[in-house]
């Protein structure tokens, strides 16, 4: 156990090191320079550009820049080139905005996909199963931005509630507390539902196949043969064993914390992580792009690590 943890931590740190090099190279070798974003701007005199380059070590060779950047990152001193704010603070602020979306989206995904998946496994090949299958393919295939507009049209026409942004503009003054609360809920609901659609489809298919796998086992036949009621067979004997792989999936949802869908956040003008990353890409704000990349790589690695660990704890068969 200890040796497994040690080995995988070392391996993950090495991977992270290479990720940092690759992402740094991708950004710096790509054509175009941040000082050329707005060449027509009269404020961008050659002296300003030169001072800018000196300030952010852009005149140094690449490996020195790399060293400076990651030194700043680990001491928390990275500043955005665009507005000189600390990148860590910026990300934290946007992260707090994205967090409710992520939490609500995850709750919707996990609470919906389990009942759907289990039910379609029990009624395999019947009408419910087939329509659920088709529906989940539909949800996987629908482009998120198109679905967003369909939902916006529907909600705005039917319920006459505003949905764009995090809250209705200027609602802070004079509105009662429940009113503000409901307003936030309405604004939260659509984007988090959109974020959950793909997840529901994939996860419910996965639940279904896991359930089918377990329902074919011998011990289920035994349980049936000894005359247990079907509910008990499905929910007590089958489900408990089918749940095993999903415990490990808790680790894999971690990267979603910072992923924040770029497209959905830009449609709903939601000031979250994805939108910040998008704006940073447009402005060639390298520190922000690299930091987001680095943090998400850390989350991916931490997620796989946690899921490996959970698997080790939950499943005694692989504890060798």
């Amino acid at each position: 156990m200890i040796s497994f943890i040690g080995r995988s931590v070392i391996q993950k740190i090495i991977t992270l090191f290479f990720v940092s090099i690759v992402s740094f190279l991708i950004i710096h070798i790509a054509p175009g320079k941040p000082s050329q974003v707005d060449p027509m701007n009269p404020k961008f005199t050659p002296e300003v550009v030169e001072r800018f380059q000196k300030e952010f070590h852009l005149d140094k060779p690449l490996h020195v820049q790399y060293f400076y950047f990651y030194k700043d990152l680990f001491t928390g001193e990275t500043i955005s080139w665009k507005d000189n704010q600390s990148v860590i603070n910026k990300i934290w602020e946007r992260f707090l905005n994205s967090l409710p979306l992520f939490i609500v989206g995850t709750i919707i995904t996990w609470t919906l996909s389990f009942p759907i998946g289990i039910r379609s496994a029990i009624f395999r090949g019947q009408f419910y199963d087939r329509s659920a299958t088709f529906l989940s393919y539909l949800l996987i295939s629908i482009p998120g931005f198109f679905f967003a507009y369909v939902l916006i049209i529907f909600v705005v026409n039917q319920f006459h509630v505003p949905v764009i942004g995090m809250e209705t503009f200027g609602i802070g003054e004079g509105a009662s507390l429940p009113h503000i609360f409901m307003d936030r809920i309405w604004h939260l609901l659509l984007p988090s539902m959109l974020g959950a659609t793909g997840g529901i489809a994939v996860l419910s298919r996965y639940v279904r196949s896991q359930m089918l796998e377990v329902e074919g086992q011998d011990y289920i036949r035994t349980a049936r043969a000894k005359g247990l009621p079907p509910e008990q067979v499905h929910y007590k004997h089958a489900l408990r064993n089918a749940l095993l792989p999903f415990v490990t999936m808790f680790g894999l949802i971690l990267p979603g914390l910072i992923g924040g869908s770029v497209i959905i956040e830009s449609i709903f003008s939601w000031p979250g992580m994805g939108r910040m990353a998008y704006e940073a890409i447009l402005a060639r704000d390298y520190p922000v792009i690299l930091t987001v990349n680095f943090v998400s790589a850390v989350l991916v690695l931490a997620g796989t690590f946690i899921s490996d660990l959970l698997y080790l704890i939950v499943d005694p068969r692989i504890r060798l």
Partner: peptide, 13 residues
């Protein structure tokens, strides 16, 4: 290493 990058974000960048 490649799987560590968030794919849509990487493509976008």
């Amino acid at each position: 290493i490649m799987l560590c990058f968030p794919s849509f974000f990487l493509i976008l960048t």
